[in-house]
Design a protein around this nucleic acid. Sequence first.
DNA 1: CTGTTAGCGCATTCAC
DNA 2: GTGAATGCGCTAACAG
Lengths: 352, 352
Amino acid sequence: MGKQIKIKEIAALAGVSAGTVDRVLHNRGKVSEKSLAAVQRVLSEVDYKFNIHTSAVSFRKDFNILAVMPSFSEGDYWESLYAGILDALEEYSDINMHCRLECYDQFDSASCHYVFDRALEESPFDAVIIGPTFENETMEFCHELESRDIPYVFVDSAIDGLNPWATFSADQFSCGQILARVMIPFLGTEGRLVLLESHRSGNQLSQNSIDRIKGFRSYMEERVLLHRLLEDEFYPMDPERNRGQIEKILAAHPDVRGFAVLNSRGYAVAEALESLGRRDIHLVCFDLTSRNRTALEKCRIDILLCQRPHEQGFKAVKSLLSYVLYNQKDAEPHHLMPIDIIVKENLPYYRQ
Amino acid sequence: MGKQIKIKEIAALAGVSAGTVDRVLHNRGKVSEKSLAAVQRVLSEVDYKFNIHTSAVSFRKDFNILAVMPSFSEGDYWESLYAGILDALEEYSDINMHCRLECYDQFDSASCHYVFDRALEESPFDAVIIGPTFENETMEFCHELESRDIPYVFVDSAIDGLNPWATFSADQFSCGQILARVMIPFLGTEGRLVLLESHRSGNQLSQNSIDRIKGFRSYMEERVLLHRLLEDEFYPMDPERNRGQIEKILAAHPDVRGFAVLNSRGYAVAEALESLGRRDIHLVCFDLTSRNRTALEKCRIDILLCQRPHEQGFKAVKSLLSYVLYNQKDAEPHHLMPIDIIVKENLPYYRQ
DNA sequence: CTGTTAGCGCATTCAC
DNA sequence: GTGAATGCGCTAACAG
């Protein structure tokens, strides 16, 4: 391969200046039809490779990111995702990036609305990372962003009908299928499984949960195992009540072999089983939170399914960066994360 | 966080010039005791963060990498690892990096010896990536490299007693344990498992295989299941003979429920089982090669355990790059890859 | 709309 | 041994 062609040479070939080539490459500023055509013709003939290093070096503007997601506590899923964002800022710290974090209560749409509203009024930002929960609130917010020409990316899940710059999430239907897949061996010839969702007072299920349930059921149905499936709820925030609930389920259905938990609160079920002395019951849930990690290490949880939140956050920043530097559409707007199957033995090799 | 401190400011604080600070930072060239002390004192007080972009921009030397590994064919493990190397060269193509690939026959130590010898005589290189197989040959080669001050990194596995700049591999003992772990559910109450190794004429086992066997056995032993374990060999290169072998094993032991294949040749066992019409026998092996991928999609293989060869190659280059640019020891000399558990349902989300 | 120019932070070279 | 000067390729600001 010969030497890489540079902007200057392209400019010479097209009979314009380097500045104009830059304008065309990143469609910033105005360029006349004629110059545009000339530059694009040259570009189509040569194999120009953008040099991200020099670009970053001479990029001197500030870049402000706003991150909006559900509030989190130490060691949980959203913290890991936020850590990914921070790590990306660190890795690309040559570029003057800043990130403001705003959290809403994921069980309260009003708080989400409030946070979105306030965000628009406060200090300006150049791009947004959104971990969406409430469809209507998110749509309204994103429409406003679009009218202001501010790019946004989704992490964890997407809202249909919007035009994010990119989305980083796992396929939730597949998550449900995999959950079923890894639990079926526990069924034996006679046993049953219980699909558990967190109890929510008056609230409907999140979109993620709905998709996971669909995936789970479809997988069981294809294998004619739906009659071996029970569905119920549990109380992750109330250990006492939760213990009673799990006990009740097990008493009513002595043939239950395992619990499939649809979210990251599996540790709560693990604790209930522990205090009931039922170490024979299998348990699988989502996400490598620190409490789940501990339960996995102690063999209270059999398997964790993980969606790489850290990678989601990291890549979200990276893609926004490429937006600023390249101003070119990503080839792949929807990045599907691998769904890692983690057991006690391969746990040490996955990062927190 | 305040503004990042730059080399110039450090120079000013230490009462020397930027050039001297650079010499200290990358210990290149001679620096007087006095200047060294002054600069190091300042460095210990401020939080200097190296700017890889400007560094890359002003780095104008060529950088030649030599990669030595077993020869491979399309879609297999080593190709994926090499693809990772090439992708890294592409990603960092602003830096003038080149890679020369040399392959040896992994079943013939003489060919390995020959390749190492020739590599040392041919065009010069600045760093080496080694996929080792033969201990003695590799040690000799690496000693020569060390005497020439050429850094080298190991991928896939390491040879003890050497000083590579870094190593990228999975823990093979854990690989064996995980293999056992995922297969035990197939055992049922009465069944047995067969641990399969490729037949080698007169050759001893590779270090990787030895470690995996140890891991597998130890896991079974802890659970008092060793008596349910058989060990045998198969013939991946000879389908006819292989079919006979698998048939013989199954006939001799009707209670066999599954085969645990210690390397990436599981597809060969899958084909034998297929032609024997034994879809009831479970099968697990290593590595996401294209033939294994196909077998997994068709449910001929139950589970694949994968060591991320692409990531190994990519990171190997990246670490060598940081060697040239930083000339500083990596914090973590041994990078352990996650061991991914891949089933049909999460397969689509892992890259080839 | 477009060309010109300064400068980003660092590695390197060359006088001293 | 050391400092000053040069240039890497690109972006941004400004003058036309």
